[in-house]
Design a binder for these strands. Structure first.
Length: 590
DNA sequence: GCCGTTTTCGGCCCGACTGTTTTCAGTCG
């Protein structure tokens, strides 16, 4: 555990989120009031998603209770931690059970009741203990643990050791689209089929894929069978009348739900979530004398009396609120905002008219300059910026000064040829070096139409250094866009953790844009930082950072991230028309 | 422990599937 004095920025948020999460698990194993358990878990999620830095808010309980999900009790705990660097309740709680016990909750099929039983009656205190006892068959005497259950536990343990947990959104999307196509080809009677869950909400990583199928009752068996028989299925986790779960070879879990066509909207809404959004919708239904479940919105007193169920908009309408796009359904303030008419018209892929960050064969791209330009023309863009890597990116064939100048010449030459079809901007993705200096001198940057400044190396810097590094880069008068500010790679590398509020404040003052890098590896800015950017008046740039022709399709993920932040097209510079964009670019150099 | 458009107490979402249960508890989403 880090001492609080050196825990910086949102490291504090993460630390406190981890503690509340842990506390909720311990309380659950101790069979505490389930609503109390849920409160700690909810608080943990709230802190993880909090754009603001708790260290900045400080031990001010009045300010802390303003955070949704934090009440008086938890605010006092947070304040205690921020003030003293410790939390007595946490220490006490953690001392009350063996430290290895909460980790058992991660094992599929193992819940708090069974863990408590294993602990109290078999002396199991950790995953290791469980493995040993499972191996020598000494658990069969425990009540409620038959041979089947033990076998399933063995399987879960093997899986937990070998497999990762969350998948990047493009991996989940590929699986979802493939499975949908296969089922449509191979099964009879599918009336509608959609993916739901966090994939539909556009989260940056996905735990499992949910598919919702509308069909008549007579087709259920066949569709379930076709699903279980999909070639990549390695394990059927469960299969009943309306629900089947399988695990694919890649490790990803896919759930299939079968519903009647007239219930499709309710099921789609329910399984799209988020859980928190659903809870709020249900509470809203109850306040209005109705009840909502995956089969529909019904009269509370007469559940047979369906009010809405066939599609999502009719359900929202009956709840007296505008339809809410899935990307916003995170259970924050979206329902209240929708009610007040404050939800913006969210940006769409069609609104994007310019690509402002792309690579060619000059550095590490696969496309030639002309091929890339042609693709951009096909996509209907009015502007394409060519931004190859700068000299320090040796492994990516970064351009030294002489090569960059020749490249610029080539771009300008092609630009005049294609005048009237597309505007080509000669630019660079310039490395922000570890000390915040840029990889080219200003005399060179000055000659470019656009400069995307991004960090690529020294990403393990502490938060303080990362912050001053980015601030220094933003202050450079020739930077146009701050590219993928943290340098993270999802499921692979955490990246830097700068004080994003300070970075965005500087960007706002300088008048430059900050990128949402649409690569599913990056999605950087992430959603809640993009939301913070909007609140602070910083323009967003949604760029694919394309290295290959397929990469241009990643735009969808970047747009979804922007939508999750509540961005409309006025917040995104790629939506400006050609003239407006030129004017904006000029303004960054004023 | 949180929360408030029946608000400071009394609620807090609810159904499917599995396994061991002979009527239901635990887990999951």
């Amino acid at each position: 555990m880090r001492a609080v004095t050196i825990a910086l920025m949102s490291e504090v948020n993460q630390e406190l989120a981890a503690r509340f999460d842990q506390m909720s698990k311990v309380l659950e194993i101790l069979d505490e009031n389930r609503f109390r358990v849920a409160s700690y878990a909810r608080a943990a999620r709230a802190l993880e998603a909090l754009g603001d830095d708790l260290a900045r808010i400080g031990p001010d309980e009045k300010a802390l209770v303003k955070i949704d999900g934090i009440g008086k009790g938890l605010a006092a705990l947070i304040a205690e931690y921020l003030r003293d660097g410790r939390m007595a309740d946490y220490d006490q709680l953690m001392a009350s059970i063996p430290p290895g016990l909460p980790a058992l909750l991660e094992i599929q099929g193992l819940g708090p009741k069974t863990i408590a039983l294993l602990w109290k009656q078999a002396g199991i205190e950790s995953v290791e203990d469980l493995k040993k006892k499972l191996a020598n068959d000494s658990l069969a005497d425990l009540p409620g643990l038959g041979s089947k259950k033990l076998e399933n536990l063995r399987k879960s343990l093997t899986f937990a050791q070998t497999a990762g947990q969350r998948f990047r959104i493009n991996q989940a999307m590929a699986m979802a689209q493939w499975a949908i196509q296969e089922l449509c080809d191979k099964a009879e009677g599918i009336k509608r089929i959609e993916y739901a869950g966090s994939l539909r909400r556009g989260r940056e990583t996905i735990g499992d894929v949910d598919l919702i199928v509308a069909c008549g009752d007579e087709h259920r068996g066949g569709i379930s069978e076709a699903f279980r028989s999909l070639e990549p299925v390695t394990e059927v986790l469960g299969s009943g009348d309306t629900k089947t779960s399988v695990r694919m070879g890649s490790g990803i879990q896919v759930d299939l739900r079968l519903v009647r066509p007239e219930q499709f909207g309710a099921a789609l809404l329910y399984f799209t979530g988020s859980k928190e959004h659903n809870v709020k919708l249900r509470e809203r239904a109850i306040r209005r004398g109705m009840s909502l479940n995956e089969y529909g919105l019904a009269d509370r007193d007469d559940p047979e009396k369906l009010i809405a169920s066939e599609d999502e908009p009719s359900i929202y309408k009956a709840l007296q609120v505008r339809w809410i796009p899935p990307e916003l359904r995170e259970g924050r303030d979206e329902i209240e905002r929708a009610e007040k008419g404050e939800l913006p018209e969210l940006v769409t892929v069609k609104d994007i008219r310019a690509e402002l960050h792309a690579h060619t064969q000059a550095s590490d791209g696969r496309m030639g300059l002309r091929d890339l330009a042609m693709l951009a023309i096909d996509l209907g863009y009015h502007t394409l910026a060519i931004t190859d890597h700068s000299r320090s990116q040796v492994q990516a064939h970064g351009l030294d000064e002489a090569r960059l100048l020749r490249h610029v010449e080539a771009i300008r030459s092609l630009a005049s040829e294609l005048e009237g079809q597309i505007q080509l901007l000669a630019g660079s993705e310039v490395d922000i070096l570890a000390d915040g200096k840029l990889d080219y001198p200003n005399s060179l940057l000055k000659q470019l139409d656009i400069v995307v400044a991004s960090p690529h190396a020294a990403l393990g810097q502490d938060s303080k250094m990362a912050t001053s590094r980015l601030l220094k880069a933003i202050a450079n008068p020739y930077v146009t866009i701050l590219g993928h500010p943290t340098g993270r790679l999802l499921t692979r590398r955490e990246g830097m953790n700068p004080d994003m509020r300070a970075v965005l404040k500087e960007a706002a003052q300088r008048g430059i844009a900050v990128e949402i890098n649409a690569s599913p590896w990056r999605l950087d800015l992430r959603d809640h930082h993009a939301r913070m950017a909007i609140e602070m008046g910083v323009p967003l740039a949604i760029n694919t950072d394309a290295h290959d022709s397929n990469d241009l399709d990643n735009l969808y993920y970047g747009v979804q991230t922007a939508r999750r932040a509540g961005a409309g097209k006025t917040h995104v510079i790629n939506c400006l028309d050609r003239k407006e964009l030129a004017k904006w670019l000029a303004s960054t150099r004023a």
